[in-house]
Amino acid sequence: MIIKKNHYLFFGFIITALVLSIAIIGFFWTPNNPNAIDSSNRFASPSTKYPLGTDNFGRCILSRVVEGIGATVLVAVFTLIIGFGVGLIIGTLTGYYGGWVDELLMRSGDVVMAFPSILLALVFISITGTGRYNVIIALGVLFIPSFARVVRGEFVRIRELDFVHSAKIMGAGPLRIMLVHILPNAIPVLLRFLAIGFNNAVLAEASMSYLGLGVQPPDSSLGRLLSDSQPFLFTAPWYALSAGVAIVLLILGFSLISEGIVLPRSE
C-alpha cells in the first residue's frame, strides 16, 4: 500500500492532529473572548486567567492564537479547494488530451508562475480590496498553475503506459480511463503535493495577513498576530513566540506527512 508506517508519518500525524484539534476547538470555545479588551491587564505575563498573557489591548493571547490557527487553516483549506480543484480538472484534461489547448493553458500557467506570487496577490488584492475571502480567491487562483502542472505531468507520464493502451483497446471511454485507470496511479504524488501545497498556503496567508492584506483587525490570524506582536518583541516575547510556534508546528506536521508518503516506485 502507499502508506507504510514510518516515523515521519507518525509524528506528522500527531503534530497535525494536535494543531488541527486546537483549531477546531477554537471555533467553538476559547479560554477568553479573543476580542475582549481588558484595559486593566495590558501586557500581563502568563497567568491562570491568561495562560499566555495579554497583548497591548489586554486581550488574551492564547485565545487569539487559537482563533488565529483556525482562521489561517480555513484560508489554507479553501485556497487548496480552489487551487487543487481547478488544477485537477485542468491538469487531467490537458494531460490526457494534449494538443493546442494544453499548450495554451500551460503557457498561460508559465506566465502566471513567472511573477512572484506575493506580487500577483498584491495586484489582485489592490483591485478587489482586502479581506479573507479575497485572499482565498487570490491565493486559490495563484495555486492553480502549479497544481495543474503536477497533475498534468502525472497524466502525461501514465497515459503512455501500456495498461492505458490496453484499456483503450478493451473499449474504455476517455472519462473511465482518466478517472478509473489513470487517477489512482497519480494519487501518491498528488497527496504529497497536496501536503506541500497546504504548507505553502499557510505561509502565503501568514505573509498576506502580516502585510495587512488578509484577515483584518480585530479578527486574528497567525500572520496578523505576527505583525501585531512585532513592536513588543522585547517587552512581551511570548506574544510573537506563541504565534510563531503555531505556524512552525502547523507546517512541520504537514511537511512530515508529505515526507512520509512513500511513492510506490521508490519502495
Binding site: L161, F163, S166, A167, G171, P184
Partner: peptide, 17 residues
C-alpha cells in the same frame, strides 16, 4: 476488436489495481 499482449508485462497491468 483484436486484443493486444504487450512486451512489458508490468507496464501493461495497472499497478493500482
Amino acid at each position: 476488436i483484436p486484443q493486444m499482449i504487450f512486451q512489458d508485462p508490468l507496464g501493461s497491468l495497472n499497478p493500482a489495481k
